[in-house]
Amino acid sequence: MNTRPQIEHDEDVLLLEEEVELRNLVVYNDDVNTFEHVIKTLIDVCGHQPEQAEQCTLLIHYKGQCAVKIGTYEELEPLCTAIHDRGISADVV
């Protein structure tokens, strides 16, 4: 009879939760850019559907600004730069 000693394994699993601070990409109204230009920019840069881009553009026009995308600073900063490159005012807040 071959008896093996029973070994108990207690595994402590450490879960690392990284706190990620989400931010908003905010686009601001101006008197220079057309609705069509802002809509096309939101579609091209932010990946909006046409209806979503149009709604955001209306909010930008009537409210003065609109948060067009939510994400980490690292995700939003290049999008903000691309929007600036098209002559539109935006910030990551």
Rank of each mutant, 00 (worst) to 15 (best):
E36G: 14
L59M: 13
L25H: 06
A82H: 03
Q52H: 08
T41M: 11
D10I: 15
K40H: 11
G64C: 09
G64F: 02
N33Q: 03
R23T: 03
T41N: 05
N24D: 15
V32W: 01
D91R: 12
Y28V: 02
Q6K: 12
C46H: 08
G47V: 03
D30R: 01
H9C: 07
E74Q: 14
N24V: 01
I7K: 13
L15V: 15
H37P: 00
V32R: 11
N24P: 01
V13W: 05
T3N: 15
H37L: 09
Y73D: 14
M1S: 14
R23P: 03
I43D: 03
V45E: 09
Q6I: 06
L15A: 14
G87R: 01
P5F: 05
G71Y: 07
V13H: 09
G87S: 08
L79Q: 12
V26C: 02
F35E: 03
Q65V: 06
V32Q: 00
E75M: 06
F35R: 02
H61P: 02
D91Y: 00
A53R: 06
R86N: 10
T3C: 14
L42Q: 02
V27R: 04
C66H: 10
V20N: 01
K69Y: 12
I83T: 01
L15E: 14
P50C: 00
D10T: 14
E19I: 06
C46M: 10
P5H: 12
F35Q: 02
I70A: 02
L15S: 11
R23L: 12
Q49G: 11
Q55R: 15
H84C: 10
D44W: 10
